[in-house]
């Protein structure tokens, strides 16, 4: 979901914007955080899932983000977009998570598969195979490159928002996205070559 678009949509429907809700949370109406939770929990969960490849850890990290939002609510200024502020918190939570992790953990081993309860239709098999390949390629990218791609491709953050989030120039983000995509393309082709049966 594009944040800009959704914000406009929300404004159009006269629903409170993310910024209004977070200002209310900051000013003591903490129950308003529930609305922000409902808006962002899936987005944050997928952000963490694509970074960590671990469902349980991603769920813990979503909870950690909202704990931190409450902890740091007084520091919310409302002068930047809420999603940028939220993803700053999410990035920090992920960095702390990485610090706690054992360095020897192999990237391939990080994606903990939960067996599906639904029977797998044959038509879905190829898609699943391809998704698995993309996931493995993404896992093999260095974490900084993976993060920038996830933010850009899946979280629908604009280049200028990512630049603000990371504290760098927009031009730097453009170059980083380009390099990350090139590396991902190379890794994907390598994995694909190794998987041809």
């Amino acid at each position: 979901m594009n944040a800009d678009h959704s914000e406009k949509e929300k404004t159009g429907r006269m629903s409170p914007t993310d910024n209004e809700l977070m200002e209310a949370v900051r000013d003591g109406r903490v129950e308003k955080l529930a609305v922000l939770f409902e808006r962002y929990q899936t987005m944050l969960y997928n952000f963490f899932l694509r970074l960590t490849g671990n469902r349980a850890a991603s769920e813990d990290l979503v909870q950690e983000v909202f704990v931190r939002v409450l902890k740091y609510r007084a520091g919310y200024l409302g002068d930047s977009r809420f999603n940028v502020w939220l993803f700053q918190i999410a990035r920090n939570a992920h960095i702390d998570h990485l610090r706690k992790q054992k360095p020897a953990l192999s990237l391939d081993g990080q994606f903990v598969e939960v067996p599906s309860h639904e029977p797998q239709p044959d038509t879905a098999y190829e898609n699943d195979r391809e998704a698995e390949l993309v996931r493995r390629a993404l896992d093999r990218l260095p974490v900084q490159k993976r993060e920038i791609l996830v933010l850009f491709r899946f979280q629908n953050l604009k280049l200028r928002e990512i630049a603000e989030l990371m504290g760098v120039q927009v031009g730097t983000v453009k170059a980083q996205v380009h390099r990350a995509l090139k590396d991902l393309s190379r890794i994907y082709l390598e994995l694909q070559g190794g998987n041809v049966s």
Binding site: A34, T42, E59, V67, L184
Partner: peptide, 26 residues
């Protein structure tokens, strides 16, 4: 090509425990 390939990654839903934990925390 790789940009399009990234689109095959499905969006997953977090488990229902995430919501319960959040509301308990709140």
């Amino acid at each position: 090509v790789v940009w399009a390939k990234l689109g095959v990654l499905p969006e997953e839903q977090p488990g229902s425990a995430v919501r319960s934990r959040f509301y308990a925390m709140l």
